[in-house]
Structure formats: structure tokens, C-alpha cells
Amino acid sequence: MARHGSWEEGLPARRLEHADPVELPPPDVWPRTVPAVEQVLAHGVDLARCTVLVGENGSGKSTLVEALAMAVGMNAEGGSTGAAHRTHASESPLHEWLRVVRDPGAPRWGYFVRAETMHGLFTYLDTSRADSPWSRDPLFHGLSHGESFVALLGTRRFRGEGLFVMDEPEAGLSFSAQLHLVAELTEMARRPRTQVVLATHSPVLAAVPGAHLLELGEHGIRPSAWEELDLVAHHRGFLDAPRRYLRHVVDDLDD
């Protein structure tokens, strides 16, 4: 894949590739069985100032963004490179097989948020707030899930330079909140030495202006334009004619 931008941009994660000479397990061992993962191990993948991964469940989106976050030292369950909370170890070993190619002088600060462990992250932030530099944080558990995420974006964690990795951040967000997130992501990606990488099922988040879109599937990974994404086509088709889709999953739906 072609590089995006110049090496002078100071991106924290210019490229993700196999950490040769790290030995890999056999190809029939997960997550090597995922075509997108195997493609990254074989050929690497270049990342832009804003990269959006889309694809069906099981296509490898979350596995890759998790591995990226962990490979640069972020906590597997969300948080910064300094976070240490832990509930249940479920991450893949992929981060141990990969290396992140950084631009010279790129910042090492980063933050990882993922939908499936957001509750644990907010618990960690609420219980450690008195002893942290983020003592002005709101009590996240006093807010709804969507409100908590928007409030987290409003803290100083997301105001500086660095690598911001998000896994399905649209979970719990209304349409208007997703639009707000698109605006935030756009502003973040325009800062010097700042990079955003996210995985999503949302056609709204995939529409971040200037984002490099990567579609994952049985084919592996391929760059795509927003209007060519299966994700967009399916949402458009459903909104145009919901019954055309529902009749395949609802047995007693009248024609």
C-alpha cells in the first residue's frame, strides 16, 4: 500500500508490520486465520493521519486496533500508556508479533478506547481520579454511556498530540453524538504530530473528511472510497426499503 503523507509529519504509527525475526505460530492458529491479520503479517499496512477500518464482525478490525494500541504500550482494556487497570485478559497475542514504524520525533502519548471495556475504563477513571492529574474529571458513572464518552473526549487527554485509537466508539452514541464525534476526530487529525485510528460499523464515522478507509473481509484489506463501502450500501438499502431486508430474518413478515 502507498504511503500517505511525508515522513516529516511526525506520525506515531506510520506503519504496522511483522516484527521480524519474531517467530509466528502456524497459519491455522488464530488470529492468523483472519485474512486481514495474515495480510498485515505478510505485507504490513500503512496508516494515515486518520485511518478508519470497516468490515463485518470477525473481519479483524478490533483485533488489529487492539494490537496497534498494545504494540505502542497502551492498556489492552482502554486508557493511556500509563493505565494499568485489568478485569479479564481476552486480547490476542498479535501485538507480540508486530512492530510499529514511527516517524522521527513522533510523540509517544496515546489513548485507547474500546466499546466492550468502556464500563471498566470509567470505573478505573472514577476510582483513581483523586490521585490523578485528571482530578477535574466528571464522575463518568453518573452519566449515561454516551454522555460519558462525550465527556471523556472533552478532557485534556484528547487535546494534545499523540496516537488516538478507538474501537467501535459509536456504541451508545446517538446520531447527533456521532456527528459530534466526527467533528472531534476531524479536529484531532488536523493537529501536528497527531493521528487517529479507529474501527467502526458506523457509516457516519466512516465519513470523517480526508480519512483513509480500509475495508476488511475475506479478501483481506483493501482501500476504499466511502460511497463504495459495503457498509454504506447496506445502510442505504435498508433505509430505502427495510422490509426487503427484514423478510430474510423475520419468518412471519408479510410480503
Rank of each mutant, 00 (worst) to 15 (best):
15 R>D: 05
179 L>W: 13
134 W>I: 03
184 E>S: 12
24 L>Q: 05
100 V>E: 00
250 V>W: 09
226 W>Q: 08
194 T>Y: 00
2 A>H: 15
110 G>N: 02
50 C>Q: 07
10 G>V: 12
237 G>V: 05
128 S>F: 11
67 A>C: 10
219 H>N: 05
90 S>A: 08
182 V>W: 08
252 D>N: 15
111 Y>M: 03
249 V>C: 06
174 S>T: 09
65 V>M: 02
37 V>P: 00
74 M>Q: 05
162 G>E: 02
254 D>R: 00
237 G>E: 12
105 G>Y: 07
34 V>S: 02
221 I>S: 04
181 L>C: 00
127 T>I: 10
204 V>Y: 07
187 E>P: 01
100 V>P: 02
125 L>M: 15
28 D>C: 12
87 T>W: 15
178 Q>D: 09
250 V>M: 03
140 F>L: 11
192 P>I: 15
241 A>Y: 11
230 D>T: 10
35 P>A: 14
121 L>Y: 05
33 T>S: 04
187 E>L: 06
255 D>N: 13
90 S>N: 11
122 F>Y: 07
181 L>Y: 00
4 H>A: 12
44 G>Y: 01
194 T>W: 02
135 S>H: 05
103 D>Q: 08
142 G>E: 12
66 E>H: 00
199 A>K: 04
160 G>D: 05
198 L>G: 04
163 L>I: 01
128 S>L: 07
43 H>S: 09
216 L>P: 05
226 W>E: 11
191 R>D: 15
220 G>R: 02
29 V>Q: 05
104 P>K: 04
255 D>T: 10
89 A>V: 12
229 L>V: 06
99 R>P: 02
111 Y>T: 01
108 R>L: 06
13 A>F: 00
229 L>F: 05
192 P>R: 13
63 T>I: 01
76 A>S: 10
217 G>T: 11
251 D>T: 07
148 S>C: 02
90 S>K: 10
101 V>T: 14
87 T>K: 10
26 P>V: 06
222 R>L: 14
85 H>N: 14
226 W>C: 10
211 A>N: 01
251 D>L: 06
202 S>V: 13
184 E>N: 04
73 G>S: 10
26 P>N: 12
233 A>C: 15
145 H>R: 13
135 S>M: 08
193 R>W: 06
91 E>G: 08
226 W>V: 14
231 L>C: 08
67 A>I: 05
69 A>E: 06
52 V>E: 04
106 A>N: 00
216 L>D: 10
38 E>R: 05
160 G>L: 02
97 W>Q: 01
117 T>C: 07
183 A>L: 14
45 V>Y: 01
134 W>N: 02
84 A>C: 04
55 G>W: 01
38 E>F: 03
30 W>L: 08
170 E>N: 05
84 A>Y: 04
143 L>A: 14
188 M>K: 01
200 T>S: 12
24 L>A: 06
169 P>C: 01
188 M>V: 08
